[in-house]
C-alpha cells in the first residue's frame, strides 16, 4: 500500500515535471522560430503546430499533480462558512463528482484514441502527426486524476473516523 502510493506520487510528479519542461520547450522553440524566420529566412514551420499539440500534453500531464496540490480553483464562499464536518462532506462530494467526471472522460477519450488509432487519421498541417498521439494525454491524464480523486475520497473518510 505504501509502495503503491509512493509509486503514484512518483508518476504524478514526473508527469508534471514533463509539463514544465514542455512549457520551457515551447518558449525556446518559438524564439528559435523568430530567429530562423527573421535572420535566416528559413522558418521552422512546426513551432505553432507543436506548441498547440504540447498544450494538450501540458494540461493533462500536469492536471493530476495540480489536483494533489489543490491548485484547481473553486468557489470557497460556502466552504469557509460551515463547520468542519460539513466541509469534509462537501469536499468528499465534490471529489466524487470530480472522480465520476474524469472517469467518464478517460473512458470516452480512450475510446476516441482507439478509434483514431485504427483509422490512422493525421492532422493535416505541416507535420501530419497522427491524431491519436495528440489525444493520448486525455485518457492517461484523466485516469490519474481519477486515482487522485479516489485517494482524496478515502483520505477524507479516514480523517472522519
Amino acid at each position: 500500500m505504501v509502495n503503491m502510493s509512493r509509486l503514484l506520487n512518483c508518476i504524478i510528479s514526473k508527469m508534471a515535471m514533463v509539463s514544465g519542461f514542455l512549457i520551457l520547450f515551447i518558449m525556446f522553440s518559438i524564439c528559435t522560430e523568430v530567429a530562423m524566420r527573421q535572420i535566416l529566412n528559413k522558418p521552422l514551420m512546426w513551432t505553432v503546430e507543436i506548441s498547440e499539440y504540447l498544450q494538450v500534453y501540458i494540461t493533462f500531464l500536469g492536471a493530476a499533480w495540480v489536483l494533489r496540490k489543490d491548485g484547481h480553483v473553486r468557489l470557497d464562499v460556502l466552504l469557509n462558512n460551515i463547520g468542519s464536518d460539513k466541509r469534509k462532506i462537501l469536499y468528499c462530494l465534490s471529489s466524487v463528482i470530480g472522480a465520476l467526471t474524469v472517469l467518464l472522460i478517460s473512458f470516452f477519450s480512450g475510446w476516441t484514441v482507439y478509434e483514431q488509432f485504427n483509422l490512422k487519421t493525421p492532422v493535416i498541417k505541416a507535420l501530419e502527426i497522427q491524431k491519436w498521439i495528440i489525444l493520448m494525454p486525455l485518457p492517461i491524464g484523466s485516469f490519474f486524476m481519477f486515482i487522485e480523486f479516489v485517494v482524496k475520497i478515502f483520505s477524507a473518510d479516514s480523517e472522519n473516523k
Binding site: N41, K42, P43, M45, K125, A126
Partner: peptide
C-alpha cells in the same frame, strides 16, 4: 522568392514551388 506567405495546407506546396517562404500562423 523573398516573400513570406501565410499558408494553409491547401496551397502550401504551391507557395514552396514558387520559391516563397511558407509561414504558418493562427
Amino acid at each position: 522568392k523573398g516573400l513570406k506567405i501565410r499558408v494553409t495546407p491547401i496551397y502550401e506546396p504551391f507557395v514552396r514551388a514558387l520559391g516563397g517562404t511558407a509561414v504558418t500562423l493562427a
